[in-house]
Design a protein around this nucleic acid. Sequence first.
DNA 1: CTTATTGCAAAGCATTTGCATCGTG
DNA 2: CACGATGCAAATGCTTTGCAATAAG
Lengths: 148, 148
Amino acid sequence: MEHRIERIKKQLHAQSYKLTPQREATVRVLLEREEDHLSAEDIYLLVKEKAPEIGLATVYRTLELLSELKIVDKINFGDGVSRYDLRKEGAAHFHHHLVCMECGTVEEIVEDLLEEVELIVEEGWGFQVKDHRLTFHGICRDCQPKQD
Amino acid sequence: MEHRIERIKKQLHAQSYKLTPQREATVRVLLEREEDHLSAEDIYLLVKEKAPEIGLATVYRTLELLSELKIVDKINFGDGVSRYDLRKEGAAHFHHHLVCMECGTVEEIVEDLLEEVELIVEEGWGFQVKDHRLTFHGICRDCQPKQD
DNA sequence: CTTATTGCAAAGCATTTGCATCGTG
DNA sequence: CACGATGCAAATGCTTTGCAATAAG
């Protein structure tokens, strides 16, 4: 955890950005809740517990900054809200998501799974793939018994 | 084209919705611009050419209705705007998109390509896949020579 | 005829921005 | 100490809603 904060601090400094207490608090929340897919508002409320003076605008600005540096990815599951997801360490690609249509839970898939599909797209469409977004909508394991 | 309008009319009636002139004009715009990925505002302006009295709210309401009936899909490429995309006739799944990071063009992929990945997800994660969203971000064929 | 649908304007949200102030490097 | 970063409040922009008027089946 401290190790990852250090890393991020270096990434910021490399672009001559500062790691302010507000930014650090925000990053800590993201690290602690890595499994979740928090909205800016969610993050704001959690950061406020550590640093009560923080403003929502700062959280937005920090998240935008972290997005630029590819430390977090901004995703959108179709409700009107953006969610922010920490990149896995050393991950070349963004990971995938399983959204349950029943209970709303979001599961993550870290495995690539798309290598072959990307090859097909590069060769068949002449499109040079840089990144991807893949989300499956369906029924998660826990909700399936409830289905008849 | 008329055939597809008829089909949609039937789908509406099946749920006891009416095919008003405003709704028909909206559907016609979607059919005419099937390749594009129009925002509600875009659609509104185009519908206005056919039916100048229409209100933006009606366009939103119509698009929401068509979404419910799975006639269109609502997508979001990360700018703050929702875009609306007509489902291909008889397509079991939503089609994929290639978004060019250079020129912003959006290309469509009608081929499934995910059959195998979905199998892996169903078996490995116990997740019953109902639908998917797949978007690749990268450089399209036309923009590649312009690179470096 | 009845009830869904419309248009307009106002309201609602998530996100962004202006600006004076503050604090990091 | 300079300049980037912050907090607040106001502004923005997309989308939704309330309501009286209208029209489809």
